[in-house]
Amino acid sequence: MAPKTESTASGYWYPDGDGATTVDVLNLLRRYRSAETAMRARTRASMRMNETDLVALRHLLREQRAGRAVRPVDLARVLDISTASVTALIDRLERDGHARRAPHPTDRRAGVVVPTAESDAEVRKTLGPMHQRMLALVDGLSEKERAVVARFLAGMADAVGEAADGDHAS
């Protein structure tokens, strides 16, 4: 193989290529994760919530849009916290005006947790513009490109999940 010269290093004889290296892709993934982490911190700060409370609120809003009732035990399961911890969490969400307790629509013995309209509006105001930019970016991809990105992200999630599962096996 010929030594790299100024002309070959610049791509004069061989195309530099538009593709990213494996390291470039992994660095971009890290950059995305850092940006998302910073965005979540800004959201928590602006809404004066901790991470668990924010995850709980997002779950409540998603389930409400899907027309599903959320019992405290459902929140405990989703968040992987104790029933005592979920009671404290619901107390905080209620105190801060993000959610309220209500009777279960079909089971008189049970209660549900419902996000408030004000909280839904605050989340939409806080995250709406960012979500619109993200949707526009994905909408700008071809069907083939979306399939590649989806396959890549699913594979990365599996790889990280397998690493975490393997870490606990020893």
Rank of each mutant, 00 (worst) to 15 (best):
M1D: 10
M1P: 15
A2Y: 07
P3N: 12
P3Y: 03
K4Y: 04
E6L: 08
S7T: 13
S7K: 12
T8M: 03
T8A: 06
Y12V: 10
Y12H: 10
Y14V: 11
Y14M: 02
P15G: 10
G17R: 03
G17P: 10
D18F: 02
A20Q: 14
A20V: 13
T21F: 00
T22R: 02
T22H: 00
V23E: 01
D24H: 00
D24V: 00
N27D: 07
L28C: 04
Y32Q: 09
R33I: 05
R33D: 06
A35C: 02
A35G: 01
E36V: 14
T37E: 08
T37V: 07
M39P: 02
M39W: 06
M39C: 05
R42K: 13
T43E: 07
R44F: 02
A45W: 01
A45E: 14
M47V: 14
E51D: 12
E51N: 09
T52V: 15
D53W: 01
D53P: 02
V55F: 03
R58E: 07
L60H: 04
L61V: 06
R62W: 06
E63W: 05
R65A: 09
R68S: 12
R68F: 05
R71A: 14
R71F: 00
R71G: 09
P72C: 09
D74G: 10
L79Q: 06
L79F: 03
D80R: 15
S82G: 13
S82C: 05
T83E: 15
T83V: 15
A84T: 15
S85W: 01
S85A: 15
A88F: 05
L89K: 01
D91A: 11
R92V: 14
E94I: 03
E94Y: 06
R95E: 15
G97F: 08
G97L: 05
G97T: 07
G97C: 11
P103I: 09
P103G: 14
P103E: 10
P105L: 09
T106V: 11
T106A: 13
V113Q: 01
V114S: 01
T116H: 04
A117P: 07
E118L: 00
E118M: 06
E118K: 09
S119H: 08
D120V: 12
D120S: 14
A121P: 09
E122P: 08
E122W: 12
V123W: 02
R124F: 08
K125N: 13
T126V: 15
L127K: 12
H131T: 10
H131Q: 08
Q132E: 14
Q132A: 10
A136H: 03
L137H: 05
L137I: 13
V138P: 05
V138M: 06
G140H: 05
L141S: 10
S142N: 08
S142K: 02
E143V: 15
V149H: 04
V149R: 01
R151I: 11
L153Q: 11
A154D: 12
G155F: 00
G155D: 14
A157D: 14
G161P: 11
E162V: 12
D165C: 04
G166D: 11
H168E: 13
H168D: 15
A169D: 08
S170N: 02
